[in-house]
């Protein structure tokens, strides 16, 4: 079976997504959370490209891929700006150390 079916890509993107979620939840460090999120969005983009290739063959799926990539860029910009703002104030990027809000 030389040609690759849809399920190969879907399995790969599902593994990427799982790694992304695990990395985003498992780490205390804000940068690691952003890395996990970029992974999740990339897995979604890969999945969309696979379904657009094997499914409707229309430009719609890949259009969504372009938008997902741009949205990931915008989220990274704001996320990193916030990390720098917090780092300057709290000298660390551990999201969980900044817990003055309680109750």
């Amino acid at each position: 079976m030389t040609s690759v079916g849809l399920h190969h890509f879907v399995l790969l993107s599902a593994v990427l997504f799982s790694l992304g979620i695990a990395c985003a939840i498992a780490r205390r460090n804000a940068v690691a959370i952003l890395v996990g999120i970029e992974l999740m969005l990339n897995a979604a983009a890969l999945n969309l490209a696979a379904f657009s290739r094997f499914g409707a063959l229309r430009a719609e799926g890949q259009l969504f891929v372009l938008f997902v990539i741009v949205l990931a860029a915008a989220e990274a910009v704001v996320g990193l700006a916030l990390i720098l703002a917090i780092h300057r104030r709290l000298r660390s990027v551990d999201v969980h150390r900044a817990d003055s809000l309680k109750g």
């Binding site: 993107s13 992304g20 939840i25 999120i37 999740m40 969005l41 897995a43 979604a44 949205l71 989220e75």
Partner: peptide
Amino acid sequence: MIAGGMLAF
């Protein structure tokens, strides 16, 4: 952002 990633997927 985690919710955004889940929504896209």
